[in-house]
Write a protein that binds this DNA or RNA. Structure first.
Lengths: 155, 155
DNA sequence: GGGGTTGATGCAACGAGTTGCATTTGCCAC
DNA sequence: GTGGCAAATGCAACTCGTTGCATCAACCCC
C-alpha cells in the first residue's frame, strides 16, 4: 500500500460537499450528513455494506437504498469512486489522492495501489494501438504477489 | 472481438468432461449434462443468470445453486473461466482459446479482447518491478473506445 | 415565518449469487 | 442386481445491491 490520508485537504473537501450539492440544486439532509461524516473518518477502501453498517452506528434507521443513492451522488461530485473487487462486490475509494488502480493477490488477499506511472505501459499501448482511453481507477489486476508465488509451486 | 469457436476442438473438450469429472471422483448427473450441453452451444461470454435461464429451457426444474456449483467445478476443470463485468455481475468465458483479458467501453458497452502480447507491457512491468504475477483472464480494462472518445468531449 | 416545488427518503419487492442442511442418487464393489 | 458411501441436488434463507412509488422535507421565494 502507498501513503494515504492528508487530513487537512480531506476536511476541506468534506466541508465543501454541502455547498457543492447546493450548487447543483441538490439537498443536504441528515442522512447525507451522516454518510459524509462516516466517509470523512474512512481511509482508503471500503465496501458498500460496511458503509451501511457504519452509518447505522450513528443512525440505526439508516436504510441501504439511501446510502447507495447518496454514494452515487457523491461519486458524481468526485469525492469518491467505486469499483468492483475481485469477488464482484462493490468497493469505494474515499477521496483518492490521485487516480490509481489496484493489484489483488488471490492467494493472500492483499491489495496494493498502482499509480499512473506504473500503469502507463499498458494504458499508453492501448491508447496508441487502439485509441482506447483506459480508466485507471477501474483497473484491478488479479494475480499472485511475490510471497505467495514463492510459497506455491502452483495452484 | 477476435476470432472464436473452433467447433471440432470444442466438441472433443465437452465430450471429455464426463471422463475428467470421473477421474477426480466427481459425478456425471443429468443436471451437469444439461449445463454442459448449454455451454457447448455457447460462444464467448455469458452471465450466470443467462446460463440458468438456458438450462431451464431444457429442464424447467433447474435451480440456481446447482448451476453455480457446477460452474465452479467446471472452472476447476479449466473448461471455462469466470470474471466480473464492469457492473460486478459474474461473467463466464466458455472455453477460452487462449488466456485473454478484456477492454470495456463504458460509453457504448462494447467489449474487445486483449491478448497476451498486448498485455505483456503491463504484466511484464509488474513482474519485473513487483514480482507480481498477474492473471490476464481476470483483467478488465474500463475506458472509452475510439468512437465514443470522439463523440464525447468529456463526461 | 409560511407555502410550494421537487429532490430525497423509506418501504417493499426484486435479481443475482451463496450457503447450510436434509435428502437423493451416481457410482463402485461385491 | 444389490448395497453403501460420498457427492450432488433442492430447498430455504440469507447477503448485497437496485428500483418503483408513495410520502416527506430541504430549500427558495415571498
Amino acid at each position: 500500500m502507498q501513503r494515504r490520508g492528508s487530513t487537512a485537504v480531506e476536511s476541506n473537501t468534506w466541508g465543501s460537499v454541502r455547498e457543492r450539492l447546493r450548487e447543483r440544486g441538490l439537498r443536504w439532509t441528515p442522512q447525507r450528513r451522516n454518510l459524509v461524516e462516516v466517509l470523512a473518518r474512512t481511509d482508503g477502501h471500503i465496501t458498500g455494506a460496511e458503509l451501511v453498517a457504519r452509518c447505522r452506528v450513528a443512525d440505526s434507521a439508516t436504510t441501504p437504498s439511501t446510502v447507495y443513492r447518496t454514494l452515487d451522488v457523491l461519486e458524481e461530485l468526485g469525492v469518491l469512486q467505486h469499483c468492483h473487487g475481485v469477488d464482484g462486490r462493490e468497493e469505494f475509494h474515499v477521496m483518492p489522492a490521485s487516480e490509481h488502480g489496484h493489484l489483488f493477490c488471490k492467494a493472500c488477499g492483499g491489495t496494493w495501489d498502482i499509480d499512473d506511472a506504473e500503469a502507463s505501459a499498458l494504458l499508453g499501448a492501448l491508447r496508441d494501438d487502439r485509441d482506447f482511453v483506459a480508466d485507471l481507477s477501474h483497473l484491478t489486476v488479479v494475480g499472485r504477489c511475490r510471497q505467495c508465488a514463492e510459497v506455491a509451486t502452483r495452484g
